[in-house]
């Protein structure tokens, strides 16, 4: 049965949308990511206007993430102090990102900049993750052990001022890196409709050296706040959130997550990172191909907002 989307002003087949929500939710459950970086391109591919796709994906990510946040909160694997610091700068970043999105849209470059940021970010994160997972895999094969976290080691981050103690993360570091990270993720969330976990998790693990068990819960908390804010800001500024589309996506998504988590629990960490890296690189490669291949129609049409 087709349903009519009042904001996108088009009708879609609800089963297809439900399946997209489920599929992306499943992958989020497996890999512990929000899945926005898959959802937005998928919706655009299905014919949803890019603005509506970005804004509605943000609401979908916040719904899917909320159940995860609850679970981590109960388990105590959520660093509220770190989360709050990143949230504060994340909200500023989101506001800046929504403003930037409007400027790019008026310039006619929103589509290009969304694609370009996807290619650059997904490409580099994917390569780093692939490299790291293969190294770990090979080391395990050869019977060596690699330790991800070396507590005694210091890097340049430890030389920065304004040090704060984050008890839950067992860290005593400067607030500057979390603030910058939160801001960047906020901007990305607004212009790409993504939560930014795929960027945040590696930075928290490898640069901030947070313990892995706290990383996922804390990044989910940050993603939840930032995507919720992005949803509201898009709704206020561009009227581009489609609540009917969001409803179907979230219902599919929350079920997908539950099944995904079960599958994800059976996979080993480096296997997870290997498959996630492949997925991320595949999306980046596809978007890159679209940017360099000659488009079928050189002209594209955008209706000016009434």
């Amino acid at each position: 049965m087709e349903i009519y989307l009042p904001i996108a002003e088009m009708s879609v087949h609800w089963l297809i949308v439900l399946a997209m929500g489920f599929g992306v939710g499943f992958l989020s459950g497996v890999f512990g990511i929000g899945g926005g970086f898959l959802m937005t391109p998928l919706l655009i591919f299905y014919g949803i206007p890019p603005g509506v796709a970005v804004a509605t994906t943000a609401s979908q990510v916040s719904g899917v993430t909320f159940s995860g946040v609850l679970a981590h909160w109960k388990r105590g694997s959520l660093d509220f102090k770190m989360g709050t610091v990143m949230m504060a700068s994340g909200l500023i970043g989101t506001a800046a990102g929504v403003f930037l999105f409007g400027v790019l849209r008026r310039m006619g470059q929103s589509e290009f900049s969304v694609s370009a940021s996807y290619v650059i970010l997904l490409g580099s994160v994917g390569v780093i993750m692939l490299n790291e997972s293969i190294r770990t895999w090979r080391a395990a094969w050869e019977g060596r052990s690699v330790s991800g976290r070396r507590p005694g080691q210091h890097n340049w981050i430890h030389g920065l001022p304004f040090k704060v103690r984050f008890r839950q993360s067992r860290l005593y570091i400067s607030v500057i890196p979390p603030v910058v990270l939160g801001f960047v993720v906020g901007v990305l969330s607004a212009i790409m409709g993504v939560g930014g976990a795929f960027l945040m998790v590696p930075v928290m693990i490898y640069m901030l050296r947070m313990p892995t068990n706290v990383v996922v819960g804390t990044s989910m908390f940050q993603v939840l706040i930032v995507t919720s804010a992005a949803t509201i800001l898009h709704a206020v500024n561009y009227f581009s959130v489609d609540i009917v589309l969001a409803l179907v996506l979230i219902v599919g998504g929350v079920f997908g997550v539950q099944y995904g988590v079960r599958v994800g629990a059976k996979l080993r960490g480096e296997q997870l990172r290997f498959f996630l890296a492949l997925l991320v690189l595949a999306v980046a490669a596809r978007l890159f191909y679209e940017m360099v291949a000659r488009p079928a129609d050189l002209y594209s049409l955008t209706a000016v907002m009434p």
Binding site: L70, S228, T231, F239, I250, V254, F255
Partner: peptide, 23 residues
Amino acid sequence: AHGWPFFYGLSTVLMALFLGWAS
């Protein structure tokens, strides 16, 4: 969505959170 965009966005978020919690 067009008349009360803030409350519309807020209700979308609340709906999302409710569905996440209900699941």
